[in-house]
Design a protein around this nucleic acid. Structure first.
Length: 607
DNA sequence: CACCGATGCGCCCTCTGCTGGTACCAA
DNA sequence: ATTGGTACCAGCAGAGGGCGCATCGGTG
């Protein structure tokens, strides 16, 4: 065996990662051959096969997750597994003693039925068996292997032997247990003769004190012949008890009865604490643990997690080990359980099975739809108040983002744009910078003038220097500000220009400026207020009232607000309005004078 | 043989939290 | 008009709870 292993070791070491050994005889002997059994009492991994018991204890890390166990009863008395080559060097191939430790292996009979790991090009491989699809129709893949709990600390030895030639790259796990060593004395062909036999063969214990019955096919032993005989039926395909409703066959009457109860809805096991009822007593016990007693017998050794079911603990352990046995065949995603893979497959199929009953929007997950309904179609939805500021955010997760972005401590200093202050919290920086917002930080060296923006100061300083860089091309008149030049040009050189007229509603006299009209029309105080308010509203709304327009008078009046009790600071608003309106016709035409300030023009230019 | 507890697999669900696109607002 | 910031929102995955069902093995 060792020689054979050496000869084929190189082939073995060529085997890469997730490739699986292809099942050769899945439909025949193997089907009733290799089985994996968990031993609740211990931590050893037992691999049952027609030739005895394989018990292995794998050293964590030595056997990777994709270790698969295959039964090849028609070829050898062995179990084939695949290993990643980096785990075993050539010289280790002849005889390997492996300590099997739980959580490091991923061994399953299911692997015999499962497709091989998807190839990078998507080709599942010629021997891939897709018979068992998670979703049934979504092209999902089965796990490479299924983690098994290894509840026994006992160490068991087994050996590996490379098997096959050429393309045959398989590792044969040969049991080194006492039973198997005895059987190695018998030629393989003779052993094969025994395998299919289900004859009840009793073997007396060496002590002779008590007779036990050993199954020749698996590890089962029993002290009672009746149990043994019943067990032997599990190796038979005989299922004489047929459900008359669905024609499904069962081995025992009890199994059939439970099954028929499902059809009939008969649930004889009723919970004493609630209205639930179940077909089997086991379901009731489990239900009571979940809902009433909260007994959780399966405890995680690495954290405080405990579960009602062993399978839940097994699933939980994957969060510690990082094992992801369920691989997507369309991308690199792998999940820790079948449901997540199925859910993930919707991202490829585009399926959105959840529909909002109100707006009929569709969603891939029920939780997403639920949140949608809550946020879009519900009232009095509780919001989340930021503990550090006044922000209120609809979703808790978004509040978390808010806290992370605005209230988390940053190691790097964030500097204020306007002063030397530095901050480590973004929110504090923003609040601080707001204090600069209305600050007239730019102060003139030659007078008391101050402004918010530097360019305003640039324009202002021309009043001290006398600089007038904007020259009218028609009359060579110079201006300090471009906007003043524009106004001048329109007024004196643009024939098509028609300025706005503000007409006193009482006497009909026209004015180019509101304030002039208002001074004239003291009896029109209310009208004036409304017009100014209207002008203010227009400015705030669109900021587009940049110049005099034909018919602006009528427009302004029409848009006057109806609130008669509105109070407007005339001086303030005239400062904003005057630059864009100037007198024509009824008043003597003249250039804007003192009413037009630098800031007015610049503000207008900003708009 | 029936009963019962245990086991295992599968399916579905909820809750939770992160991520990236988008609309909106202010500068 | 542009740009940057941020709440809003849907998409998606992690983790765990709960139940349906089949099966096995111990026991009376």
């Amino acid at each position: 065996m060792g020689t054979e292993a050496s000869a084929l070791a190189e082939q073995f070491t060529k085997r890469k990662g997730p490739d699986l050994i292809q099942e050769k005889d899945a439909e025949s002997d193997a089907a009733k051959g290799a089985q994996l059994k968990e031993r609740p009492s211990g931590r050893g991994l037992e691999v049952g096969c027609p030739y005895g018991v394989l018990q292995a204890k794998l050293v964590e890390g030595e056997l990777q997750q994709d270790l698969s166990v295959l039964a090849r009863p028609s070829v050898r008395r062995c179990v084939a597994i695949s290993l990643q080559e980096e785990l075993f060097s050539l010289h280790e191939m002849e005889l390997v003693e492996i300590n099997v430790v739980e959580d490091s292996t991923d061994v399953s009979c299911e692997d015999r039925k499962s497709p091989a790991t998807p190839r990078p090009d998507g080709d599942p491989g010629p021997a891939e068996n897709k018979s068992k699809d998670v979703s049934g129709d979504e092209g999902e893949v089965q796990p490479l292997s299924e983690e098994r709990e290894l509840p026994d600390q006992r160490e068991h030895l087994f050996t590996f032997e490379a098997l096959g030639e050429g393309e045959e790259e398989e590792i044969i796990l040969l049991p080194a247990s006492s039973e198997m060593e005895e059987r190695e004395d018998v030629p393989a062909s003779e052993q094969d003769l025994d395998e299919g036999s289900e004859t009840a063969e009793t073997q007396a214990e060496s002590t002779g004190m008590k007779e036990t019955f050993h199954c020749e096919i698996c590890i089962f032993t029993s002290s009672r012949i009746s149990n043994f005989n019943r067990h032997m039926k599990t190796h038979s395909d005989e299922k004489p008890h047929i459900c008359h409703l669905c024609l499904k066959a069962f081995r025992t009457v009890s199994l059939l009865r439970n099954h028929v109860n499902i059809h009939t809805g008969t649930r004889p096991y009723k919970c004493s604490d609630c209205d639930m009822a179940f077909v089997t007593s086991g379901e009731l016990v489990r239900h009571r643990r979940y809902k009433h007693t909260h007994e959780k017998p399966f405890k995680c050794s690495m954290c405080k997690y405990a579960s009602v079911e062993a399978s839940k603990l097994k699933r939980h352990m994957r969060s510690h080990t990082g094992e992801r046995p369920f691989h997507c065949c369309l991308c690199s995603y792998a999940s820790k359980d079948t449901y997540k893979l199925k859910r993930h497959m919707r991202t490829h199929s585009g399926e959105k099975p959840y529909e909002c009953y109100i707006c009929h929007a569709r969603f891939t997950q029920s939780g997403t739809m639920k949140m949608h309904i809550l946020q879009k179609h519900s009232e009095n939805v509780p919001k989340h108040q930021c503990p550090h500021c006044a922000t209120v955010i609809a979703r808790k997760s978004d509040l978390r983002v808010h806290l992370r972005n605005l209230h988390s401590y940053k190691a790097t200093e964030m500097k204020c744009r306007y002063c030397p202050a530095v901050f480590h919290e973004r929110y504090a920086l923003i609040q601080h910078q707001k204090t600069h917002r209305n600050e007239k930080r730019f102060k003139c060296d030659d007078c008391s003038y101050a402004c918010k923006q530097e360019r305003h100061m640039t324009v202002h300083k021309r009043t001290h220097t006398g600089e007038k860089p904007f020259t009218c091309l028609s009359c060579n008149k110079c201006f300090r500000q471009k906007q003043l030049l524009n106004v001048h040009f329109k007024k004196y050189h643009d024939k098509n220009f028609i300025p706005t007229v503000y007409e006193c509603p009482k006497c009909g006299k026209g004015f180019s400026r509101w304030n002039n009209m208002c001074k004239h029309s003291e009896h029109c105080e209310m009208v004036k207020e409304k017009a100014v308010e209207s002008a203010k509203g227009k400015k705030n709304k669109k900021k587009k009232q940049k110049g005099p327009k034909q018919g602006a008078k009528e427009e302004v009046v029409e848009q006057m607000p109806v609130e008669d009790n509105s109070v407007v600071n005339i001086e303030h608003h005239t400062n904003e309005i005057v630059p864009v309106i100037y007198e024509i016709a009824t008043d003597a035409a003249e250039e804007p004078k003192a009413e037009v300030t630098c800031e007015m023009i610049l503000n207008m230019m900003d708009k």
